[in-house]
């Protein structure tokens, strides 16, 4: 088990050395990069928006219902909602969700290319297939994921505002005051830094599993599942490490 994990990690590192090479043609690379930004990033906006809006609303309700002590100021609901969104939800939870969407998409796409010999065709033409296929995906998602993170933060807070505006659980004034209180700008950067690292993990692990698929459709499905499971676990591990490093 340990030996096989070390071997897989070594293979993953070798794979990354193949991926991060100078592209054969920069023009083609930039065109692929734009395509991937659109496919992996822009297409994820609706999902991020919907989830953030609802989770922001739910967090706000939970905080209101649980913070009932007269010793705690009423604006705490907004403050707690903001801190949860900025510190964990918009980075870690959002990336765990995106690992399912983006990770399975990448693993199955590259895996299908492998089993239908499209990758072999590129190799025979003399193209570095790992670089050509994978680098635009990794770079594209890394470049766009901060936008998704900020979107998630904003729409999460909007979700909380909906609860304040359309229910009698708390007042809008208290909520707005709460989300503005004790604001630490570093928490936004902390969230963005985490999402960039997670984006790298999601895309590179999914590409790795897809690239080395052997067999047929069944194995492509397995690779897709393995990619999501592995990247989710590594996201959580990286979350612990980054939190220790960035917030201590």
């Amino acid at each position: 088990m340990i030996v096989s994990s070390i071997k897989t990690f070594g293979k993953y590192c070798m794979f990354l050395t193949q991926v991060f090479r100078t592209p054969d043609k920069w023009r083609v690379f930039f065109s692929n990069l734009l395509f991937e930004i659109n496919k992996l990033g822009v297409d994820s906006i609706p999902l991020v928006l919907i989830i953030s809006l609802f989770i922001g609303a739910v967090i706000c309700i939970q905080m209101t219902l649980n913070i009932v002590s007269p010793l705690i100021p009423s604006y705490s609901t907004g403050l707690a909602t903001r801190e949860i969104l900025l510190l964990e939800f918009s980075s870690t939870m959002m990336c765990l969700i995106l690992a399912g969407k983006v990770g399975s998409n990448i693993a199955s796409e590259i895996g299908t290319m492998r089993v239908t010999e499209q990758i072999d065709a590129m190799d025979i033409m003399g193209i570095n297939s790992a670089n050509y296929i994978v680098m635009p995906k990794i770079m594209g998602f890394i470049l766009f994921v901060p936008v998704l993170c900020v979107f998630s933060m904003f729409f999460g807070l909007v979700g909380g505002w909906f609860i304040a505006e359309f229910t009698s659980m708390l007042t809008v004034e208290n909520y707005i005051f709460g989300i503005q209180s004790f604001f630490n700008e570093w928490y936004v950067w902390y969230g963005i830094i985490k999402t960039v690292v997670f984006a790298f993990l999601i895309t590179s692990i999914a590409a790795f599993y897809g690239y080395y698929v052997k067999g047929g459709a069944l194995e492509v499905g397995k690779a897709s599942t393995n990619a999501v499971v592995s990247s989710s676990i590594l996201i959580l591990l990286a979350d612990v490490i980054l939190t220790k490093l960035l917030l201590e």
């Binding site: 299908t112 290319m113 239908t116 010999e117 499209q118 072999d120 065709a121 190799d123 025979i124 033409m125 003399g126």
Partner: peptide, 15 residues
């Protein structure tokens, strides 16, 4: 490799 052309069993066209 640029001097080689290859026709695969399943055509291997880019979808």
């Amino acid at each position: 490799r640029t001097e080689i052309g290859m026709l695969f069993q399943g055509s291997a066209l880019f979808d």
